[in-house]
């Protein structure tokens, strides 16, 4: 149906694999602004400097939800320093086509992950 979003992006929007909350997370990243309508929370569980588990809750458009899900997929199992190297472009590339005006959502997802890691390290 939609050629604004790639099939893959639509799939991650409609069937997000990493949606949910983590009980007792080691780090939480809360990002977004009501002005653009997207609010994102990333939860991480860390074990031996690696992201053992990661989940998200996102209030937002299809792109915001799909990019949240993808950043979780990309970050899962990574060493924290490597997870921090994930760029918003990595997220976009993995999802395929996003509407140009929605590419910033990937930026938000990356920021969310960064916040969660910083939250863990700050503790």
């Amino acid at each position: 149906m939609s050629n604004i979003y790639s099939e893959k992006a639509m799939d991650h929007f409609l069937n997000p694999r990493n949606m949910g909350k983590l009980d007792d997370p080691d780090g939480i990243g809360d990002v977004g602004n009501p002005g653009c309508g997207d609010l994102m929370t990333i939860y991480i569980k860390v074990d031996e400097d690696k992201i053992k588990d990661i989940k998200f809750k996102t209030l937002g458009c299809a792109a915001a939800i799909a990019t949240s899900d993808m950043i979780c997929e990309l970050a899962k199992g990574k060493v924290l320093d490597d997870a921090l190297k994930i760029t918003f472009q990595d997220v976009v590339d993995k999802l395929g086509k996003l509407p140009p005006s929605k590419v910033h959502c990937a930026n938000l997802a990356q920021k969310g992950l960064k916040e969660a890691i910083n939250d863990y390290r700050g503790k």
């Binding site: 149906m1 939609s2 409609l14 309508g37 937002g60 299809a62």
Partner: peptide
């Protein structure tokens, strides 16, 4: 409350 409009449109369209 608690949802974004475009997401609703996209799912309904599906």
């Amino acid at each position: 409350k608690g949802v974004e409009g475009e997401s609703i449109v996209m799912i309904l369209d599906q």
